[in-house]
Computed example of a mutant assay.
Amino acid sequence: MRFDVYTPLLVSLLLPLISPVIARRVAPALAARVLTAAAVLTAAAATWSLILLTTALLGEAPPVVREAHEDGRPLADPVPEVIGLAACLALVMVVWRVQRAVRAERRTRRALRRLCEGHPRDTELVVAACEVPQAFAIPGRPGRILVTSAMLGALAPAERRVLLAHERAHLRHRHGRLVTAVTLAAAANPLLAPVRSAVTFLAERWADERAATEVGDRDTTARALARAALSARPGCALNFADRAVTRRIAALQTAPPPSLWPAAAAVLALGVGAALFAADATDDLVRLLFNALT
C-alpha cells in the first residue's frame, strides 16, 4: 500500500501532460472518448486512494482496532498520520467541489430547457428572436437546438446547414454526457482540469468533423466557423474562443486526423492502471489489518 496508493495521484499528473498531444494527433471522436474514460477512472482511483490514506487517522477509534491493541497485537500505521489528515481534508474538498459542480450543471440544464418551453415536443429547432448571435445544443428527451435570429442572419444558407449539422452532432453523439463526466472528474481531482479543457475542445472538433462530412465541404464548414466567430460573443455560439476557433478552422483546412488506436489504448491504460493500483492498495490494507487482528 505504501507505494500503490500514491500511483493514481501520479497518473493525475501524467494525464494532463499527454492530453494536448492526444487532442492534436488522434481523431476527435476517439480521443474524446478515451480521455474522458481515463479521467473518470483516474479521478475515482485518486478519490479512493484518499479514502485509503485516511486510515492513518483510525488510531484507537474502531473497537476492533482497540481490541487488537489491548491484546498486545501489533497494528502498524499504513501511512504517517499527517498524510492521513491531509487526505481527510482533501476528501472534504472533493465532496464540496463535486456537489458544487453538480448544482451548476443542473442550473445550466434547467435554464436552457426553460428557453424551449412552450414549443411542441417534436420541435427540434427553436429560433429565438435575439440580437445576440448564439447557438446551443440542449440535451434531453427530446434534444433541442436553440439558435438566435441574429446568428441565422449572420450566416449564408450553406453555413446555416453547417451550424445545424454541428449542433445535431452534439445531440446525436451525446457530447453533453462526455463533458459532464469529465467536468465531474475534474471537480473531484483539480489536477485533471487540463483534460476537461481538452475533451471540451475535442467535442467541438468532433462536431465540426461530423458537420463537414454531412455538408460535404470542409471549406464551407471552416467559413461558417469563422463567420460565426466574428459575429458571436466569445463562448456563445459553437463554443467559440479566439484561440480554440483558430485551431478548429486550421484543422478543417487539413485532412481529418487518423484514429491512432495504440496511442488511444495507452491513454486508456493509464486510467485502468490507476484503478488497478488503487485496488491493489486496498488489498494490501485489508491484508495488513487481517494479519494484525488474527
Rank of each mutant, 00 (worst) to 15 (best):
A279M: 09
L288E: 15
W96L: 13
T213Q: 13
G140S: 01
C236D: 14
V127H: 10
L85G: 15
A263G: 03
V286A: 13
T282N: 00
A56K: 02
A128F: 08
A111R: 12
L58G: 00
T55M: 05
T148M: 07
A61Q: 15
A244Q: 11
R2I: 13
R233Y: 09
A264C: 10
V98C: 09
L53A: 03
R25N: 10
L178R: 13
A101W: 01
R114S: 08
P257S: 04
A31G: 10
R160K: 11
G235V: 05
L230M: 09
G273V: 01
L152T: 03
V195N: 02
A251V: 04
R174A: 10
H166T: 02
T200Q: 11
A212G: 10
S231D: 06
L155A: 06
A86F: 12
E67W: 09
V199A: 03
R243K: 08
V64H: 09
T246F: 01
L238I: 04
A237H: 04
A27Q: 14
R287Q: 14
N189L: 08
R218A: 15
E167A: 02
V215L: 06
P190S: 03
A104G: 07
A212Q: 10
V40Q: 00
A101D: 07
T254A: 12
A278E: 08
